[in-house]
Amino acid sequence: MMGLKERAFAPCVAVSLEELVPQDHFSRHLQKVLDLSFVYDLVHESYAAVGRPSVDPVVFFKLQLVMFFEDIRSERLLMRQVADRLSVRWYMGYD
């Protein structure tokens, strides 16, 4: 006898990245101890006053830190990691 799968859609449950990343994760520790606000002052003169907005320089710096700590050798692999790993997305500020 052939079985049929019934599709039963449950209501969406609201979940945030804050709930999904463990409290003892390295990204949380890094977020607490590393203040990257100096990056804005450091790169301010390199950006034009008008035009299209760029990637946030702190986010770019954090991506470079992820590449270093995770020993990722290419930016394509880095973007794949960012897409797949919730902890990296949390660290970048995508909540």
Results as ranks from 00 to 15, higher is better:
1 M>G: 11
1 M>N: 01
2 M>K: 12
3 G>K: 12
4 L>R: 04
4 L>P: 00
5 K>A: 07
6 E>A: 06
6 E>N: 08
6 E>S: 01
8 A>Y: 10
8 A>D: 02
10 A>Y: 05
12 C>Y: 09
13 V>Q: 13
14 A>Y: 05
14 A>I: 03
16 S>F: 06
16 S>V: 01
17 L>A: 03
18 E>W: 01
20 L>A: 10
20 L>C: 13
21 V>C: 04
21 V>N: 05
21 V>Y: 05
22 P>L: 03
23 Q>Y: 07
24 D>Q: 10
25 H>V: 01
26 F>C: 00
26 F>I: 14
27 S>A: 11
27 S>C: 11
28 R>P: 06
28 R>Q: 10
31 Q>K: 11
31 Q>R: 14
32 K>T: 12
32 K>C: 07
32 K>E: 15
33 V>L: 09
33 V>H: 12
33 V>F: 10
34 L>D: 04
35 D>Q: 01
36 L>V: 00
36 L>C: 08
37 S>E: 09
38 F>W: 13
39 V>W: 07
40 Y>L: 11
40 Y>P: 00
41 D>E: 14
41 D>S: 14
42 L>I: 00
42 L>A: 12
44 H>K: 15
44 H>F: 06
44 H>I: 06
45 E>L: 05
45 E>D: 13
46 S>G: 03
47 Y>D: 00
47 Y>G: 01
47 Y>A: 02
48 A>E: 10
48 A>H: 10
49 A>Y: 04
50 V>E: 13
50 V>S: 09
50 V>D: 12
51 G>K: 03
51 G>R: 03
53 P>E: 09
54 S>A: 14
54 S>Q: 06
54 S>D: 11
55 V>L: 14
55 V>C: 08
56 D>G: 03
56 D>M: 03
56 D>K: 04
57 P>A: 05
57 P>R: 02
59 V>M: 08
59 V>E: 10
60 F>A: 15
61 F>N: 04
61 F>I: 09
62 K>V: 05
63 L>I: 07
64 Q>D: 09
64 Q>N: 13
64 Q>P: 00
65 L>T: 11
65 L>E: 09
66 V>E: 06
66 V>D: 04
67 M>G: 02
67 M>Q: 15
68 F>K: 14
68 F>H: 14
69 F>V: 13
69 F>D: 04
69 F>C: 13
70 E>L: 06
70 E>P: 02
70 E>V: 00
71 D>M: 08
72 I>V: 15
72 I>Q: 08
73 R>N: 14
74 S>G: 12
74 S>H: 09
75 E>Q: 14
75 E>T: 13
76 R>W: 02
76 R>S: 14
77 L>Y: 05
77 L>P: 00
78 L>E: 07
79 M>I: 03
80 R>L: 12
80 R>M: 11
80 R>I: 11
81 Q>D: 08
81 Q>E: 14
81 Q>H: 14
81 Q>S: 13
82 V>D: 12
83 A>I: 09
83 A>W: 09
83 A>V: 11
84 D>P: 03
87 S>D: 15
87 S>T: 06
88 V>H: 11
88 V>T: 05
88 V>N: 04
88 V>Q: 07
89 R>S: 08
89 R>H: 05
89 R>G: 09
89 R>Y: 02
90 W>R: 02
90 W>H: 05
90 W>E: 04
91 Y>I: 04
92 M>F: 07
93 G>Q: 03
93 G>L: 02
94 Y>F: 15
95 D>A: 07
